[in-house]
């Protein structure tokens, strides 16, 4: 018998496919369940307004989680997202003038800063061969510190027109829904193009990627640079919601950004994940808050619920992983 005959029948392929995507499917099921519960308790859930509203509420987390998903796909983790978000909001709240020119200038600078900080993370990680967890923990602390130096407590102001961004509509969809669509299109393109494939491949197996000619330094700079960009974008968007800067607000997005990605099926070990899953994860984490509200239980149940959902998601992926390994054996 040759190896070819030990190859897979189509059914095994289907089963592998199901197992590989089990975490994503579980996330879809959970979101459906939440929406259904929501829908039975509340009227008008299945309308565009509701979609617009929830997307607007979830957009900061979605942007932060997009930045996190890219890093997780690379096999790293980025805790400095929190620091970048804090610093971004603080810069916006203290520097934005009323003119469009000033807003554009400082927005651009915030995004550039995000990229620069990200690239610095990536370079530190590759040049000194350090653990992403520790490097980004350190840069988180530094960025957070700088934010506190600029603005010791919540405050500052933004132009009035900047505040309404999330409620602008076009063809019945809010600006945030359009942003979401753009994000997903960007992702589809990015992951089919070489830079995206390279990030995913390097996360899947760094040594192999290196032997195939990938420059690990460049991949890390790109990965963390993009991640920093999305964190900065999250900060900009956040100020359109809050209208103020906060040196501590970023902390609220670090772990949820990881949680949204993981709930959506992104592996912490790199190489596997998709933005669609992350978006679903972000919706789940956001809707939990609404659900707690309409079920009229203490809002303190919200963290409990999100923790339990996170556990269900990782257990599903752990069990699928085990089953897949058994299959391979």
């Amino acid at each position: 018998m040759t190896m070819a005959e030990t190859g897979d029948a189509p059914r095994k392929g289907l089963r592998n496919g199901l197992l590989d995507n089990a975490p994503f499917l579980v996330a879809c099921a959970m979101l459906t369940l939440i929406v259904v519960i929501y829908g039975t308790r509340q009227t008008g859930v299945f309308t565009l307004d509701e979609l617009n509203l929830n997307t607007t509420a979830a957009m900061t987390l979605m942007l932060a989680a997009t930045g996190q998903t890219i890093v997780l796909l690379r096999g790293g983790i980025n805790l400095s997202i929190g620091g970048m978000i804090s610093l971004g909001t603080v810069i916006v709240a203290t520097r934005f003038g009323d003119s469009a020119g000033s807003v554009i200038l400082w927005s651009g600078l915030v995004l550039l800063l995000g990229i620069a900080v990200g690239v610095a993370n990536g370079l530190l990680i590759s040049i000194f061969r350090l653990q992403p967890f520790l490097v980004t923990l350190a840069t988180w602390s530094i960025l957070n510190g700088v934010a506190m130096i600029i603005l010791p407590s919540d405050g500052g102001r933004v132009p009035g027109w900047w505040l309404g961004f999330g409620y602008l509509q076009f063809l019945g969809l809010s600006s945030t829904v359009w942003m979401l669509i753009a994000l997903l299109i960007f992702w589809a393109w990015f992951m089919a193009a070489r830079p995206g494939i390279t990030i995913k491949a390097t996360g899947s197996n760094e040594k192999s990627a290196f032997l195939s000619g990938v420059s690990i330094l460049r991949v890390n700079a790109l990965t963390y640079g993009l991640s920093g960009f999305f964190a900065a974008a999250a900060a900009l968007y956040l100020t359109t919601q809050t209208g103020a800067g906060s040196p501590t607000i970023g902390r609220d997005y670090i772990l949820p950004s990881v949680a949204a990605a993981v709930i959506g099926g992104t592996s912490l070990f790199g190489g596997r994940g998709h933005l669609a899953g992350t978006i679903i994860g972000a919706y789940i984490l956001t809707l939990i808050g609404n659900l707690v509200f309409i079920l009229r239980v203490s809002s303190y149940w919200q963290p409990v619920a999100s923790g339990v959902i996170l556990l269900i998601a990782v257990l599903a992926s752990a069990i699928a992983e085990k089953a897949a390994r058994k299959q391979a054996a």
Binding site: I197, K200, A201, G203, S204, N205, K207, S208, A209, L211, S212, G271, R272
Partner: peptide, 11 residues
């Protein structure tokens, strides 16, 4: 063709 393979498991 390396002894330690240069392949990516998730591709």
């Amino acid at each position: 063709v390396f002894q330690e393979l240069s392949l990516i498991p998730d591709l």
